[in-house]
Write a protein that binds this DNA or RNA. Structure first.
Lengths: 268, 268
DNA sequence: TTTTATACTCCATAATTATGGAATATAGTC
DNA sequence: GACTATATTCCATAATTATGGAGTATAAAA
């Protein structure tokens, strides 16, 4: 004999039906996700509103998390991601074969061509800069380690989804493709999805001025045994250099990516 | 009228006193800490024993954490820290002024002297490698980003506690100083505590063969306004090079550390 | 072959805790 | 000067959930 909601709080008694509780762990993750997505500190009050959680809940959990160093309290009383999370993150990274091998090749490549080189990976609908070796030039690259941008903004982003089934690729770009700061990034899901597959098959993706003005990016995919793109290695250069030395740079990234795949294959 | 434990389960009724429960968040953190400290994947069974937690609890929480991507399940069914933690960690790092500024100077320094340069920080009783720029030489440095070693194993480790009150320094080394792989690291708490203060005051700490054979390390502290050591920058070289070019390297690290302090002071 | 450790699942329940609600204070803003 | 949003704390309690305990099945030891 099941009882419907209407039967419980329908007629006379006060509507005591309490919305089901959310566990502490879930609330915690909501808080962490919100902080990470906005990228700035927030007060307990703001977090409560953002997570649609009761104030009384959030104030307690935030205090608890601060005490456990999962959050840091800023001078103004707001909170931000804490050092404990960084500790876990570093341990994770240290045990990733891909990052170890790719990091080394990244340095070699950067030294060889004298330019900034990045290792990127995918996290859901975003591309993330996982490691970076600065080039000699003094032009500042805006993307540092940890930078997250929509997949359609970068050459690497396209490679990272190239192996997915067509419908999934389309779905990803449909929900996440957005205009880049320069306004030059392609945003049409169909075009992006097609280009992603082609670029991955080519083993190369080149982009110019899409996410930053006057900055070009030459990226090659690192694939696993099944052909899935598990990450990318890319050279970041001022736009004018592409015309000068494109063939050399293309060869260099391709070689680096091949060496990473090779070393991953042997060890794993 | 307070009731003692003896009065509750002492005489006739079955001893129903249940040990107080540990919250899900705490269990989660115990699990993450254990994985991080051992550095290898573990099964739910192992985790339960390690955390002194009931099996029924751990199996449920681990499954939950895997689903939430806080943990990754390996092929053998064991679990390891998951990508979600890395995501949070990267966001934390990206907003650390110190790492941004120091990372840049690290690259400059590495290019100038042609050697491997590391940025290190302290996490409790350990030193952690936060960033690294590989040198030209092909000798492999064992410490990669994320490496955690006891504070007494390295030149940086000593600097990182130099500003603490004497008793605290002593306490840290008393509980954490341990023999290094080479057996050459100082382990006497009193000696370490004294040397830590001296090195930080000097703005320089040099170590040779303490944590790795034939590897030397020349480290300089980065201090905040209050004089506390918030991190270090260090050159890692084969031992024989120290005698050849010590003065140059010392000047270079000192300069780099000074520039980091300078840039941090201006912005923050 | 018997034990013991590993590996895992399920249930009932006591113990915790996330929640609603109420109270308080300050600062914008209408 | 009334009103609303921000900011925070405290309590009672219903709802969840960590736990104990019991059960099952391998795989090592002994």
């Amino acid at each position: 004999m099941t009882v419907t909601e209407a039967e419980i709080d329908g007629d006379d008694g006060p509507p005591k039906r309490r919305a089901s509780r959310v566990s502490g762990i879930d609330r915690m993750l909501q808080i962490l996700d919100h902080l990470q997505q906005t990228g700035t500190p927030a007060t307990s009050y703001e977090l409560a509103k953002a997570c649609a959680a009761p104030l009384s809940t959030v104030y307690v959990i935030v205090d608890d998390m601060v005490e456990k160093r999962l959050l840091d309290r800023t001078a103004s009383g707001a909170v931000w991601l804490g050092p404990r999370l960084y500790r876990y993150g570093l341990s994770y990274a240290r045990n990733l074969d891909f990052l170890t091998v790719a990091g080394h090749e990244m340095n070699e490549l950067s030294r060889r061509v004298g330019e900034t080189v990045q290792i990127c990976g995918r996290d859901g609908d975003h591309m993330v800069v996982l490691a970076m070796a600065e080039g000699i030039g003094h032009f500042q690259v805006t993307s540092r380690v940890g930078t997250r941008v929509p997949l359609n903004w970068t050459a690497s982003g396209r490679l990272l989804v190239g192996h997915l089934p067509a419908d999934e690729r389309l779905a990803i770009f449909r929900r996440s493709a957005s205009a880049s700061p320069t306004g030059c990034a392609e945003t049409d899901p169909a075009v992006l999805a097609a280009s992603a597959e082609r670029c991955l098959a080519d083993g190369l993706s080149i982009q110019s001025g899409e996410s930053d003005y006057s900055v070009a990016c030459i990226a090659a995919p690192v694939r696993d045994d099944a052909g899935a793109c598990i990450g990318t290695i890319s050279i970041v250069v001022p736009e004018f250099k592409v015309s000068q030395s494109e063939p050399d740079l293309v060869t260099a990234v391709r070689d680096a990516a091949a060496r990473i795949e090779d070393r991953l294959g042997r060890s794993g």
